[in-house]
Amino acid sequence: MNRDQLARIAVGDDERGGVSRRAFIKGSGAAAAATAIAQGAIVMADEAPTSTAVVGPEATAITMTVNGRQRTVSAEPRATLLEVLRTQLDLTGAKPVSSDGSSGASTVWLDEKPVSASTTLAIECEGKSVRTVETLGGVKPDPVVSAFAAHDAMQCGFCTPGFVVAVRAFLDKNPTASEDEIRAGLNGNLCRCGTYANVIAAALDVVKGGSNG
């Protein structure tokens, strides 16, 4: 829309979170709505306005916590989290399957939320915590990993690490999930070999085994 149509934001309001009560009222004619936005905004009152650093396109240092350890890598802004994990940190459990994240094979936790590393830029993760499927392995694997093995919830195994992260994340949120809930809740991952039936069995087993935590 034309910039003439944008009402200038008054400073004080901006410092309370970027929402001008007056402008909102002007634009929408809904006074209550403006109040709601203002109340919802996070107040950063005492912080002096700053300008934002622009980095790149050259490689820049990115520091994030990966699997509990602080790591600094050098990567271009365009590098995906998946590329950095796989080629710089040797964490190859998350897999490159789809460029648009539609397979779920690159699922990792970003600040404890399951996201697709293939559609996340590494530089977005500056200062954040990344956790990968590798944290579920080791000598005492996570019950989800054990259940996947016990129920043969894999064939070629390429989609499996992403599925394991998804199941772990899903069960963390839904620790007593029923079979119907499992069938409804794990559709962000794709498997070509056709392991879904065994994935359902593995997830149910984790729920029933009470080892879900």
Binding site: M1, L6, R8, D13, V19, K26, P49
Partner: peptide, 26 residues
């Protein structure tokens, strides 16, 4: 945004972009 702010003049440190454009909303 172009045009005048609707609520008083910008104070020091106001959200005025480097090119002189103030921020606006709709």
């Amino acid at each position: 945004a172009s045009g005048e702010a609707v609520e008083g003049p910008p104070k020091n440190g106001a959200p005025v972009a480097q090119d002189g454009n103030a921020l606006g909303e709709a």
